[in-house]
Design a protein around this nucleic acid. Sequence first.
DNA 1: ATAGAATACTGAACACCGTTCAGGGTATGA
DNA 2: TCATACCCTGAACGGTGTTCAGTATTCTAT
Lengths: 237, 237
Amino acid sequence: MGIKERQERERTAVRQAILSAARDLFVSEGYRNVSMRKIADRIEYSPAAIYSYFPSKDDIFFALAEEGFRVLAQFGIKAAEHHADPFKRLRSGLWAFYEFSKAHPQYFELMFTDRSVPSLSQDFQRFEFFQQTTAAAEADIRACVARGQFSAKLDPAAALHVLWVGMLGAATIGLAQRLAPGEDADALARDVLESLLAGFTTNQITSTFVASECAFHSPDAAGEPSEPNAGRHVERP
Amino acid sequence: MGIKERQERERTAVRQAILSAARDLFVSEGYRNVSMRKIADRIEYSPAAIYSYFPSKDDIFFALAEEGFRVLAQFGIKAAEHHADPFKRLRSGLWAFYEFSKAHPQYFELMFTDRSVPSLSQDFQRFEFFQQTTAAAEADIRACVARGQFSAKLDPAAALHVLWVGMLGAATIGLAQRLAPGEDADALARDVLESLLAGFTTNQITSTFVASECAFHSPDAAGEPSEPNAGRHVERP
DNA sequence: ATAGAATACTGAACACCGTTCAGGGTATGA
DNA sequence: TCATACCCTGAACGGTGTTCAGTATTCTAT
């Protein structure tokens, strides 16, 4: 008889209830304002019971982060599947990343911004989504390089990082609401995206991505304001 | 006799001691991990005493934020005064912004990233530093446009925002430590900066900053993944 | 059927946190 | 000398994440 199976099922049911309650509370009230007691109240268990399912509050959020990556993957996939052209697909995917930040600010903050969850930093590269989406986007960049749309000097991996960082900055600004009243975060995000893509189209790129063609020198002497350094930001094996 | 003056002096001395202790603790342990009791211990007062100098813990950080803007201004000024060339000065200033984020992550987080301090969002544009530095940087961009180094289509205010957002994204990534082991945040920041500057040099700019030359159309129908919209992100009066 | 083991859950507690408040000193001004 | 400000403290309130002994229940093995 399936006693073990039933126990397993009940256990995962409670686990899911915890995650569901935590997700609702995190989204509506923010991570900081949600306590284990509130989660416990919601599922009608004692706070201590949660600790036999998750080692800590952080681990609950960590489990939800995986959901976040799945949601983000859905955003990216949905945006990409509407375009056959690699350039447009790349642009749509990056824009989807920005849209994701607006749709799920809590997920976004946890996954990319929050400094108080350092445990994520090591592991988040290993989410399978990251491998797949990164590979797909890099392939699109390579295609753009191949057809002459992007500079041949471009390193696909580094270029993707740059695009990603740009959109992340725009998303951060939008979420943190650090713009003056007359300014629009969406338009700014679009401008960042277009500026970067335009930069990749040119052959004016100097030191970018190619250490040997660096236009900069070593940083000034100590005490002086430093300058950007040479060197690739993605190590090649 | 200067009794009132002496009292006033002692009061500001204690106030400064609180700020000094708070600054040290925030920098070394991070805002979240510093408690009023720790600050009180450091200055050898009771926790309650602090509340006759600052209404709350947030207000202590708010007072320190002003310091942060002053420090950032120093970074920018020091970087700028070493260059007569507008392009190099612009680049140095932006790089100084990134360096500032590394030197004072707590200040940086509070000033530009933290969503839990919304009171700052409205007021931070009014710090005199912002007016001055922004004006100076825009003037440099205008100079680059005038000498043909940047595209004539460029809107200086919008371009500065884009550069700022790019560096902010790089800084955020660096602080949040969301890079894989083989990747270098500094090099990535440099690549972002160079990519954006390279983008401004080209005349490939399509919709950026100029709504009338927009290469995009309206967003897709509802339910479909949206695309970047047209429109300037900085309103022109 | 019954003893024993394993599991699930609780109540109480620990050590923190930001904040409040009545009250004790102490220095000031009348 | 006395009253009045003011500064500061100790204690407390309500909250937090987390731990742990212990209970209740359920399953396993004899």
